[in-house]
């Protein structure tokens, strides 16, 4: 009887699939950036309650969170070409949809999906920043953008780090659905490989190992960042070279 489960193959085909790791990482990185940037914009729009944009943002977040990612990928992959055909037809333009590689659709769909979730995390984190510190920053003469960059984002960042890390991990695994946009990333490559030797089960085991190791590394990196940005528990040593004491009582009353 042929081997029912080829344990050796699970490990020997790892290098074969790792060739597609860059595609997975590339997809993840771009979707992450889209997610954070659009997510921050949505969070700001919702907090400032900018009319019209606020309602659009609320609807967008609701739809994105309320529909499966695979459906969103299909809608993007089939919807954008149809929209482009309309535009070409009505405006007489000649945009070529075939010139756009499938990975771009996957990046947009995954990125926008991320942004819906990230926007809520970012909004909550920004709202957790102490109003008093924002006022202090304004009162020393910082512009709105400087307050955001120097005070709000660093503090919101440490609050948002863990939930954003969660969503990044979900994203890495979400890229395995990019085959719907005809992108050959690791999971798609695993299926193709298995299609050749009918070792599907082994291919999925290999993929499971790779994704888990990837996530494990990411968890370590996040833990490192968390440690780096956290404020130290312990006060540093007070420098003893020059101990400055304020003699209180007499001088105040004098």
């Amino acid at each position: 009887m042929a081997k029912l489960f080829d344990v050796k193959l699970v490990f020997t085909q790892i290098p074969e699939l790792l060739k597609y790791l860059p595609t997975t990482l590339y997809l993840t990185a771009i979707a992450l950036v889209i997610g954070l940037v659009v997510g921050l914009l949505i969070a700001l729009i919702r907090m400032k309650k900018i009319p019209v944009l606020n309602q659009i943002a609320i609807a967008f977040v609701s739809v994105m969170r309320g529909t499966p990612i695979i459906v969103q990928l299909y809608i993007t992959y089939f919807g954008i070409p149809i929209a482009l055909k309309y535009i070409n037809y009505y405006y007489g333009t000649h945009y070529d949809i075939n010139a756009v590689p499938g990975i771009v659709f996957a990046m947009i769909a995954l990125g926008l999906n991320q942004s819906a979730f990230d926007s809520e995390t970012i909004r909550a984190a920004i709202q957790s920043v102490d109003r008093g510190q924002i006022e202090a920053a304004k009162s020393i003469g910082m512009s709105g953008f400087q307050v955001l960059r120097r005070v709000i984002l660093p503090q919101a960042g440490s609050v948002a780090l863990l939930p954003l890390g969660n969503s990044l991990i979900a994203l890495i695994k979400g890229t395995s659905l990019a085959f719907t946009c005809s992108v050959v990333e690791m999971t798609a490559a695993g299926k193709i490989l298995a299609g050749r030797n009918y070792r599907y089960f082994e291919a999925y085991c290999t993929l499971a190992i790779i994704y888990w190791v990837l996530t494990f590394i990411l968890e370590r990196v996040l833990a490192l960042i968390e440690k780096k940005i956290s404020i130290p528990e312990q006060a540093p040593e007070t420098s003893t070279t020059e101990k400055v004491e304020i003699p209180v009582t007499q001088e105040v009353a004098a």
Partner: peptide
């Protein structure tokens, strides 16, 4: 401005 609650940047 010096505030009642100090409002130092805690990070």
């Amino acid at each position: 401005m010096v505030f009642q609650q100090f409002n130092l940047f805690k990070h």
